[in-house]
């Protein structure tokens, strides 16, 4: 038996030590912050789960029947916003990355980035003050002509401040972030793959479907998730546009609209006291859980076709 020769470990240089320490600290910090938020939410929520429901605002049957409509409103508004925003965002980013002449593409790119920088309260003002009155006649027309369709059941809202208006405002808000990210992803498509498609006799659209979109799929999902995160958490724009009701309803054009968790917190927090505060925080915990679940599903969806990502 021969003794293994002693291996000399690389010497610790000062720079390496400092940098690895700093990186470790940064990585730890994010976990600590997340844990602190989660502990705060859970600890402050517990009383809300245990309290007699009669003491909750509006005296619901239980905490769950209080939070149910809010969860529904949050998810419904965010989903509508995504349905509106994602196709448009994909269209804009493909136009910028693959269709527009270079100079126009650059200008458009800056404009999109600028849109992302507009504060949400401005979008809220625009939604309540401009969009709602302007779109109300269209809602009235929809309800008159398509009232048989469950989404447009009469009566119509007289102000235009409905969940659909909220969804449109949210869509405008999340459009820039999804567009900007998708554009970057599409620009990363290797020239090699695009040329492979073209050399097979693909038209430009076929080339996009063969090479650009499949290659960008994980990036598109991440971009949509970031947009969804913003839509789920948006407070001001929703609070300013909607006059909320405690209701679960898919109707897009009525004056009775479910509100969202963040808007509900923002509206009620200033006057809340005692157990009311705990109830609001508990709704925040529910929102936290929803966001977490949505992100996990997205990660899982990305990992499904990991083999085919081209990363190997």
């Amino acid at each position: 038996m021969t003794a293994a020769p002693a291996r000399i470990a690389a010497k610790k240089r000062l720079g390496d030590t400092l940098f690895s320490g700093a990186a470790l600290a940064a990585g730890t910090l994010i976990l600590v912050v997340l844990a602190a938020v989660a502990i705060f939410l859970v600890a402050q929520s517990i009383p809300a789960f245990l309290v007699d429901p009669a003491e909750i605002k509006g005296s619901p049957d239980s905490f769950w029947s209080y939070v149910g409509p809010l969860v529904f409103g949050t998810v419904w508004a965010a989903a509508l916003a995504l349905i509106i925003a994602v196709p448009i965002a994909l269209g804009i980013s493909l136009f910028i990355s693959h269709y527009a002449p270079r100079r126009l593409a650059q200008g458009l790119g800056y404009t999109i980035d600028l849109l992302a920088a507009v504060p949400s309260v401005v979008y809220g003002l625009w939604g309540a003050g401009v969009l709602a009155p302007a779109i109300q006649p269209f809602y009235a027309w929809l309800v008159d002509n398509a009232g048989w369709f469950p989404l447009f059941t009469p009566p119509v809202s007289g102000t235009g401040r409905t969940i659909l208006t909220v969804a449109i405002v949210l869509a405008v808000m999340i459009l820039p972030i999804i567009t900007a990210l998708c554009r970057e992803v599409f620009l990363q498509t290797p020239k090699l793959h695009e040329e492979a498609a073209l050399a097979l006799g693909a038209t430009r659209w076929e080339m996009i479907r063969m090479a650009v979109l499949p290659f960008g799929r994980p990036g598109i999902i991440s971009a949509v998730m970031l947009g969804l995160g913003r839509a789920l958490g948006e407070t001001m724009a929703v609070a300013m546009v909607l006059s909320p009701a405690v209701i679960i309803s898919f109707v897009l054009t009525s004056s009775q609209n479910p509100t969202t968790i963040p808007a509900n917190i923002a509206l009620n927090y200033p006057e809340a006291h005692g157990i009311g505060v705990n109830v609001l925080i508990a709704t925040g915990l529910i929102l936290f859980v929803i966001t977490f679940a949505v992100n996990s599903v997205a990660r899982w969806a990305v990992s499904l076709r990991k083999e085919f990502s081209g990363a190997n």
Binding site: L192, A196, A311
Partner: peptide, 19 residues
């Protein structure tokens, strides 16, 4: 597009579609 369907091309670096 029709020309490229009649005249195929193989590139310098192998480029199968990764997806």
């Amino acid at each position: 597009v029709l020309v490229r369907r009649q005249v195929g091309m193989v590139f310098q670096r192998p480029n199968p579609f990764p997806t």
